[in-house]
Amino acid sequence: MSFHPHPEKSWSHSRDQFFQECPRKYYYQYYGSHNGWRADAPERAQALYRLKQLLNLYLYLGETLHDAAEMYINRWEQKGVGFLRDELFQRVRNLLNQAYRESLDADAWWQAPKRRKMLAELYYSQEKRLADRAVAEIKSRMGACVDHLIQSESLHEVIRNPEYRLVEVEKLNSFYLQGIKVYVKLDALYRHEAGKYVIIDWKSGLEDDRNEEQMQLYAYYLHNALGAPLEKIEIRTEYLLKGSCHKEEISFQGLEAIEQKILDSAAEMDLMLLDPEANRPRPEEEFRPALDARSCRFCNFRAICTVQHR
């Protein structure tokens, strides 16, 4: 494997969220941890790389639900049938239980952080156990989300409609905007025989204004990178916790806003580079810590970061 002193320069919605929440965390995630998978990397880079792999319990629940939705879609495409509710529930529960069991062996995870799971809540726990309240909350959310996934409007109206054809599911794509490489990953994209595109996005948490921004980015990708007409794009956010489906309206104003957002955000990130061409960052201490103390409380990197709100 060839050695690259600095990571690839790119932009994504999640990358922007890291930067806006805490530039120091952003530095650790994308720069400090770079090459940390190499045995000859500095110990600090290796430690940051491992901490980068920590899983937040609630976010990992979302990952397992995405896995269940993808599994359902692929089986429907291949066999014309989906999964029963209990089959999906068991799949989600097994993944969470496996993550919990692996998290009990910190030494094994430290040796193979990409092959094993480690829940941040356990890694940073003094008692090395999950709080009873968190366990009860996850069980409740897990049942509600699986139920609402099976009952979701998109599964019934789009996936099971023979006039729709699956274009892609959970595929990482990229496009360029004025020389900026932008990454997008759509949960599921369907196309109707009449030319209509439907993007489905699964959310396991509460409604958030940032979700709308993310969906506008998906529409921008479809319109500008794939040439889909605006009037032929429908975006659905399936909020699995509530069991509601929110459909976004697409407009030129919305796409212009997300384009400007990408350009402004990328320019702001460039200010933190000593060499934008090589993507070489400024020193760690120049990346300010979060202004909101709540960001530090659950940060993966709090074992290393010395600038924390007390």
Rank of each mutant, 00 (worst) to 15 (best):
G254N: 05
G254Q: 02
G254R: 01
G254E: 01
G254H: 04
L255S: 01
L255Y: 00
E256C: 01
E256Q: 08
E256W: 13
E256F: 12
A257G: 04
A257S: 09
I258L: 03
I258S: 03
I258C: 00
E259A: 03
E259Q: 09
E259N: 07
Q260M: 14
K261P: 01
K261R: 13
I262G: 10
I262N: 04
I262P: 02
L263W: 02
L263R: 05
D264G: 09
D264M: 13
D264P: 06
S265K: 08
A266D: 14
A266E: 11
A266S: 14
A266M: 09
A266C: 11
A267E: 09
E268Y: 06
E268T: 07
M269W: 06
M269A: 00
D270T: 11
D270P: 07
L271T: 15
L271Q: 15
M272K: 11
L273Y: 00
L273K: 08
L274T: 12
L274I: 10
D275A: 08
D275I: 12
P276H: 00
P276D: 02
A278W: 02
A278L: 08
A278H: 00
A278E: 04
N279V: 00
N279I: 03
R280D: 08
R280A: 15
R280P: 02
P281V: 01
P281A: 01
R282F: 13
R282I: 13
P283L: 01
P283W: 03
E284Y: 05
E284H: 05
E285H: 08
E286C: 05
R288L: 14
R288F: 13
R288H: 12
L291Q: 12
D292Y: 11
D292F: 10
A293Y: 14
A293F: 14
A293P: 13
A293R: 07
R294K: 07
